[in-house]
Design a protein around this nucleic acid. Structure first.
Length: 270
DNA sequence: CTCAGTGTTCAGTG
DNA sequence: TCACTGAACACTGA
């Protein structure tokens, strides 16, 4: 379930577990797809014995600063995850990588679907794919009028534009639906058609949804009961929100979209 | 057996 | 080059 809040949560986990310590050992699974542009063997050699200086994130990408380059760059894809492993416990199912710190702390990367990626980069933020990312909402979004100018040039549906990582880095399918629901905007609306007030609503909700999800460590059980999130899964007929509003499922931009027609506000102008 | 799926990339098109 | 669309990727689980 990795979108920005989930990735930020695992970033903090890795930080607590590894920052300031040396990596005593690196265990890699022989997976030529998840390890991209480097072999598991070369990857392990680059990390073994290095000290972890910092753990960084932008959008859905995570990387570690080490005391020597290159640095590891991780992406969780659809089903990837990073988890702590107890001393003596077996590696979790679908593991691709395990890092063991000098103090015995263990962190494992798992990914059943293998759409995640483990890479090496000399300078992660300066190279693809991180260099192509847009604004990370946790770092802040451009002023409303600047954002409106950017959206003005996009004719695609709002839902698809929200998912564009070169604009909103870290926004994924559930965040996009949640933001549009709370901003009371139709996901099919062309981004270019939003007026200033609508862009302001959208911007505010992106910030509040992301901050709130991060504040509860992306634990969805602690998301507010009023959020669409709790009711959007499984294209169930007769799905309803906590307020009793009917939820409609459709495909926009190739992705399942849940929205609530009765919440949509008419455009204020345009 | 079939199909959906919380992500990204690439080919084809305009 | 930009923007958009749809398919492909790979695998689990309902």
């Amino acid at each position: 379930m990795p979108e920005l809040p989930e990735v930020e949560t695992v970033r903090r986990l890795v930080e607590r577990r590894l920052r300031g310590r040396r990596i005593a050992s690196v265990i890699t699974a022989p997976d030529p797809i998840v390890f991209e542009g480097t072999s598991p063997r070369r990857f392990a050699a680059a990390l073994t014995g290095r000290r972890v200086v910092a753990v960084r994130r932008r959008g859905k990408h995570l990387w570690m600063e080490l005391d020597r380059r290159p640095w590891p760059l991780l992406h969780l894809g659809m089903s990837g995850w990073l988890e702590a492993v107890r001393r003596g416990a077996p590696r979790p199912r679908f593991w691709k990588l395990e890092l063991v710190a000098e103090d015995g702390g263990r962190v494992a990367f798992t990914d059943p679907r293998r759409l995640g990626r483990i890479r090496l980069r000399q300078d992660p933020p300066g190279e693809r794919p991180v260099s192509r990312l847009g604004f990370d909402p946790l770092e802040g979004l451009p002023a409303p009028r600047v954002l409106r100018a950017l959206l003005r040039r996009r004719s695609g549906p709002m839902k698809a534009v929200l998912l564009d990582q070169s604009l909103f880095a870290g926004v994924g399918n559930w965040i996009a639906d949640e933001v549009l629901y709370q901003a009371r905007l139709d996901p099919r609306r062309a981004a270019s058609s939003l007026d200033a007030e609508e862009v302001a609503r959208l911007r505010g909700r992106i910030l509040s949804v992301v901050r709130r999800a991060v504040a509860v460590s992306a634990d969805s059980d602690r998301f507010p009961r009023t959020w669409l999130f709790h009711h959007r899964w499984g294209r169930r007929k007769n799905a309803r929100t906590a307020r009793g509003e009917k939820i409609v499922h459709l495909t926009i931009g190739g992705r399942t979209t849940a929205f609530v027609p009765s919440r949509i506000l008419p455009p204020t102008s345009d």
